[in-house]
Amino acid sequence: MSHLTPERRQRCERLIALYPQKRSALIPLCHIAQEQDGYLSEPAMIEIAAMVGVTPAEVQGTATFYDMLHTEPVGTYVVGVCTNIACLLAGGDDLLAHAESSLGVRAGGTTDDGVFTLEETECLADCDVAPCVQVNHRYVRTTTPDALDGLLAELREGGRADEIPTHGNLIRVQRTTGLVADPEAIAAERAAKREEAGA
């Protein structure tokens, strides 16, 4: 029995076919699993392992290297406040402290109702609108405590769903068409090139 829905499973298989080696799809597949469960669950890791031909431990070992892959449940909305240098100069640590008191959790924690996880992040590459805040990896550009509180209230009531989908929904645009890598054709092409170079 597949843990991933048939539609997601099919997308995973299409993704795997894009790469010359299956394992390359491991991280994109982890994102798809997070889209379904909100985080990277154990059954999902086991299924991904089977799909890309590695052990579940290798999926977990890889996933835990990356900040965006959560092997424990997180909130519907993961709120990231940057405190790295450009944001620090704009009061990023004050904004983070404000978010902690507004949500009643420390950075790294999840609210009791499971709606919000608060994270202190490293640079998010939006330093001209500092301090930078992302919700589910969407730039929200709320640089003041009031604006941040307003956004949190809106999200709690289910607002801005189009702009900020629930956690795990990272890339909503599907690949519509395209060549699919054929390992045999690539090997043949390469052998021909070598021959040509050698001749």
């Binding site: 994109p28 590695v54 290297f65 990356y66 900040d67 892959l69 890339i171 890598a181």
Partner: peptide, 27 residues
């Protein structure tokens, strides 16, 4: 063909050999 590949949050992947490891589905 171009494949758009999402990373998963790690500064070190900007280092090009680390990026390739990541693209191979590894740490």
């Amino acid at each position: 063909d171009i494949v758009v590949h999402p990373g998963a949050g790690a500064y070190i992947c900007g280092e090009e050999t680390s990026l390739l490891e990541s693209l191979e589905g590894k740490r």
